[in-house]
Amino acid sequence: MSNINEKKRRPTQVVFENVSKSFGEKKATQDVSLKVPGGSFTVIIGPSGCGKSTMLGLAAGLDEPSEGYVFVGGREVAGPTENVALLFQHYNLFPWLSACDNVAFAFRNRGMPRKEARQRAMELLANVGLEDYADKVPDELSGGMKQRVALVRAFAMQPGLLLMDEPFAALDHQTRRIMQNYLLMTWQATDATVIMVTHDLDEALYLADRLVLFSGSPGTISEVIDIDVPRPRRLDEASLASIRQRLEAHLEKEVAYDEFTEAELAQVMGFAAQS
C-alpha cells in the first residue's frame, strides 16, 4: 500500500486475560487467556459454537467481557475505534455507495474533502486491480470483487488490528485462494496484526503464523500451534502436512455444539463407528 511508512509505530499487540463472556444464560467463552504478538497473523480454528467469533467481538470493542480483560495495543478495549478494522463473510459494503465511495467512507468520516477522499480511495482500489470498477455499486460486482473492496476499505485507515470472521467462506475455491493472496499481499505491506476466524483447515495452514485451537462449549483454548513455514506456502509441504494431521485429529474429537444434541451425536457417531 502507499504511504504506509509515513508513521512508524509499534505493531498492535492483543492480549486476552482470563476472559469469560456470557450472552444472557449462555456462556460463550470461559477463562480464555491469549497473547497475540503485534504484526502477527493469528488464526482461530474450532467447531462452530465454541465462541471464536465472540473473541473478535471483544477485541473489536463491540462487546464487553463478562469477566477478565482485553487489551489492544496496550490499552484496555473500551469501544470500537478506527485502529481496529472488521471484515465479515457478508461483505457489508454499503449498497448505496460505489466501490470508490465505500472505500472513501472512512476518510469522509474523518472530515476529508470528498474529492481528496475519492482520489485516495481510487489509488487503493488500483492496488487490487479494481480501478475500472470504482464507479460500480456493490450489486454490480462479483463476490470476489466485493470482498476485495471490503478488504481495501478495512485497510484504508491503516488499522493496527484487522479482525476477520470467516471472510472468504462464501467464495468458491479458486476465488478464495486468490483472495487469500490478496490478503497476504495487503497485510505484508502493513504492520497490522491480523486475527482471523475460519472453519477451513487449508486456509488456516496457508495463512497463519500461529494457530489457536478452540474447543468446548463454553469455548476454551485447547492448543496453540506456531507455524514458521515461510510464505508463499505449498499445502503439500511435509511440515504443514503433519500439522494438518494434528488439526484433523483435534477437530474430529470436537463437535458442532450448537448444531446437534448429545443424543443425536451419540446415535450418528455410533452409526459411523459400525460402518
Partner: peptide, 9 residues
Amino acid sequence: KVGRSLGTS
C-alpha cells in the same frame, strides 16, 4: 458494526 469500526459518529 462495520460502520462503527470505520469511525462513524
